[in-house]
Structures are given as structure tokens and as C-alpha cells.
């Protein structure tokens, strides 16, 4: 299977005020693959993926230099439409954050905003499809009008995944999506990620080496704002070239 580069970051530097959080990041993300980002806390993994959907725009003190190209276009070019960028790049957060609305409204929030659905039937269809893809449909199909917050943690996280895929994105960013979940819910989400990669390009930040091994094809190791090593997951975990990577994945620090 030949791989196509979906996202390409070139010489990306990010500053929070005076403090530099990322240093010259050059990283290619392949289409329809899962790319895992690992590294100790505070090394800039979240900062990096938040650059991809320009979530860092919200933070006043955050300054970005360098380029991130998606499908060959720089998303930091002045004429970029952030709204449609975020339509194409969905995000799932560390803590499940369903809106204080019904399950149904949580999922159709995005389609409504982007005017994707014309009729109520279309909306129903989108909600059903998204929930099915997120492997949640069977559990909630009889209680779509209940508040999203009434679900369990794992269900809430899958609801957030359904919400993210409801607008048909091309890329899904996941920032430690399982860190607030129990092992069973985690297993479900990992299974889901595996299926989703046939449709979407996925970037996942994780603290669990085993999770990275299980779900990803490519892994990048960050340390102190630098991308230390990147390669196929197999190579990174079987025989990393960098000592620091070696130490980290064997649990000697981090």
C-alpha cells in the first residue's frame, strides 16, 4: 500500500510568550494511518496537535512560526478559513467534554453549524451513522434525548468521537483520549481507532507505550519541545536509533 502524506510540518516553532514550547518540528503524517505521539509530560505533544487545527489561536500569548501543510496548502497562510479547516480536522480531548445537551444534539451540533444537513431526516441519518461509526449506536439508540452528560465516561468519550466524525472530517486529532477511562472502555476505543483509520487520518497522543504499539503505524517521540525520533512504530519500539528514545520506551524516565 503506497502512502500519501496528508500533513507536513516544516520548521515549526511555537512560543508561549517568551517561552519556546516547540523547536523546529519536521514531521510528516501519512494519510489513513494512525500516528502516535509519545513523550514525557510537558514536552509539547498537545501543543503540536493543537497547531494542526489551529486551536492555539485561542491562546493570546501563543505565537507560531514555520509551516504546516495539509494537502499541500499551508494552513497558516493568511487567507486560510479556520472554520473550514476545523471542519476538516476534528479533535477529541483528554477529558470527555460532551456539551450540556441531549445525545442527539451533541452529535448534530457540528452538522448544524456547517449547514451540512438540509432536512431533519438528513440530520437523523448523520446522527445514526456517526454514532454507529463510534460504536455507540446500540447503547444509546433508545435514549437519544437524554443529556450527553448522563453517559458513563467511556460512552461520553465515544460520544465525543461521534461528534467529531459527524462533520465528515479528514483528520482526527486525539489528545490522550483514554487517559480518563478504565481498561475496558480503553479497549473499546482502541478497537474503534483501528476501524476509523480506514476513513480518517488519525493522530493520537498517548502516555501508554502499549497503546501506541497496538494502534499506531507511525510513532514520533517528543522530548523538551524537540522531535527526537520518528519512524514506523515497529522500528521505534524494536530498535530505536536514539538513546533517549530507548530509555523512554523502556521506562527509564518520563
Amino acid at each position: 500500500m503506497d502512502t500519501k502524506i496528508k500533513i507536513k510540518s516544516t520548521n515549526l516553532n511555537v512560543f508561549y510568550g517568551e517561552k519556546q514550547a516547540l523547536f523546529d518540528i519536521n514531521l510528516d503524517i501519512n494519510q489513513n494511518e494512525v500516528t502516535a505521539l509519545i513523550g514525557p509530560s510537558g514536552c509539547g505533544k498537545s501543543t503540536f496537535i493543537r497547531c494542526i487545527n489551529r486551536m492555539n489561536d485561542v491562546i493570546d500569548i501563543c505565537k507560531i512560526q514555520g509551516e504546516i501543510e495539509m494537502d499541500g496548502k499551508n494552513i497558516y497562510a493568511p487567507n486560510t478559513d479556520v472554520v473550514s479547516l476545523r471542519e476538516k480536522v476534528g479533535m477529541v480531548f483528554q477529558k470527555p467534554n460532551p456539551f450540556p445537551k441531549s445525545i442527539y444534539d451533541n452529535v448534530c451540533y457540528g452538522p448544524k453549524i456547517h449547514g451540512i444537513a438540509e432536512t431533519k431526516d438528513d440530520l437523523d441519518q448523520i446522527v445514526e451513522n456517526s454514532l454507529k461509526k463510534a460504536a455507540l449506536w446500540n447503547e444509546v439508540k433508545d435514549r437519544l434525548q437524554e443529556p450527553g452528560t448522563s453517559l458513563s465516561g467511556g460512552q461520553q468519550q465515544r460520544l465525543c468521537i461521534a461528534r467529531a466524525i459527524s462533520v465528515n472530517p479528514e483528520v482526527i486529532l486525539m489528545d490522550e483520549p483514554c487517559s480518563a477511562l478504565d481498561p475496558i472502555a480503553t479497549a473499546k476505543i482502541e478497537e474503534l481507532i483501528d476501524e476509523l483509520k480506514t476513513t480518517f487520518t488519525i493522530i493520537i497522543v498517548t502516555h501508554s507505550m502499549s497503546q501506541a504499539v497496538r494502534v499506531s503505524q507511525k510513532t514520533g517521540f517528543f522530548h523538551l519541545g524537540k522531535l527526537i525520533e520518528v519512524g514506523t512504530t515497529e522500528k521505534i519500539f524494536k530498535n530505536p536509533t536514539n538513546n533517549m528514545t530507548q530509555d523512554y520506551i523502556t521506562g527509564r524516565f518520563g
Binding site: 487545527n53 486551536m55 485561542v58 479556520v82 472554520v83 473550514s84 479547516l85 476545523r86 471542519e87 476534528g90 479533535m91 480531548f93 477529558k95 467534554n97 460532551p98 456539551f99 450540556p100 451540533y109 457540528g110 453549524i113 456547517h114 465525543c160 461528534r163 467529531a164 462533520v167
Partner: peptide
């Protein structure tokens, strides 16, 4: 996190305020 969830779906600031 609720605001970010809404922004991440491409909602504008006023949409986020009104609806979330």
C-alpha cells in the same frame, strides 16, 4: 473544555457562546 470542543468543530465564538 466545552468551549474548545465547540471551537474544534469549527464553531465561531458567537456560535459557541450562544449554543454551548
Amino acid at each position: 473544555s466545552l468551549r474548545e470542543g465547540s471551537y474544534a468543530l469549527g464553531a465561531t465564538k458567537s456560535e459557541t457562546i450562544k449554543q454551548v
